[in-house]
């Protein structure tokens, strides 16, 4: 671990006293290459009645260093051409960036072959299942990423599927992932699913009535996403620089880039 980043501030000098080879007569000293790293960043996705929004910050870190201020984490998937102008799905990946890139490319290749064979785009639920099996195939050497897949379902409603690194998945109204997931998710629970919101004056105890659930309009969700990231940037060092927002509707995918604090 100490050696690979070549970054003394993170890992100490490359050859420090702590790393002078020690002679150990007893037992073996294990020395192993660590194939993973965490590149920080955060993503989130929210569904609406006829749209889905996937967003992510654009910072890419290793340790305390910012590798770049612009590395997108949200990708269009399943278009027929290289600029993905006719894509119908969105995938966001956060965690270990190289695995994320590999996973994205694999899923995109699967979707492209599906289109070639069937002459139609892959449905979001079919792609969701396929993504799960791709992740599970590497159960014992996982893609170290938290993936979120979004699109419009067969009824035209927004759909978001979230995954763990080994392929467990679930369709949800909203999901935050990555470094600042624990900061953003409770906010989303409250603002999207109206958790802990009750109808005023409805009573106490069991009589207390929850606020009625209703899908949010797009404008409101976009503001919510910006607020979520502004707050995360404030409290998490691995989140910042830029906000990439992708909005999928029946008329296609729209991309927005907004600035976030760079500190």
């Amino acid at each position: 671990m100490a050696m690979f980043s070549q970054n003394p501030v993170l890992n100490g000098p490359n050859y420090s006293f702590a790393e002078v080879p020690r002679d150990r007569v007893d037992g073996l000293r294990e020395h192993r290459f660590n194939p993973y790293t965490d590149n920080g960043g955060s993503t989130l996705a929210i569904t609406g009645a006829d749209f889905a929004i996937v967003a992510g910050d654009t910072r890419l870190t290793s340790g305390y260093s910012i590798n770049t201020r612009y590395a997108p984490k949200v990708f269009k998937i399943g278009g027929t051409n290289s600029n993905q102008s006719d894509a119908t799905l969105l995938l966001s990946v956060v965690g270990y960036a190289a695995d994320g890139e590999a996973l994205k490319e694999r899923l995109d290749a699967v979707c492209k072959m599906y289109r070639y064979r069937h002459n139609k785009p892959m449905s979001v639920n079919a792609c969701a299942k396929r993504l799960s099996t791709i992740l599970y195939q590497k159960r014992f050497f996982p893609y170290y990423v938290h993936a979120i897949l979004a699109g419009l379902d067969e009824e035209g409603k927004g759909a978001v599927y979230s995954y763990d690194p080994v392929g467990s998945y679930e369709r949800e109204q909203c999901r935050a992932a990555g470094a600042a997931a624990s900061l953003i998710m409770p906010f989303l629970d409250n603002q999207v699913n109206f958790k802990n919101q009750y109808q005023p004056g409805s009573g106490e105890g069991h009589a207390l009535a929850e606020r009625e659930k209703a899908p949010l309009p797009r404008e409101e969700v976009e503001i919510l996403v910006k607020d979520a990231f502004d707050s995360a940037v404030e409290r998490h060092i691995e989140v910042g620089d830029g906000l990439q927002m992708m909005i999928i509707t029946s008329s296609g995918i729209e991309e927005k880039l907004l600035p976030l604090k760079k500190d």
Binding site: Q6, T68, Y96
Partner: peptide, 25 residues
């Protein structure tokens, strides 16, 4: 663009590896 032993890639207007990432960048 940069690529490291883990396959991590990124691009930026300026890049530096190793000590350069803290001193030169």
């Amino acid at each position: 663009a940069a690529a490291d032993l883990l396959g991590t890639t990124f691009t930026s207007p300026s890049l530096a590896t190793g000590f350069g990432s803290v001193l030169a960048q």
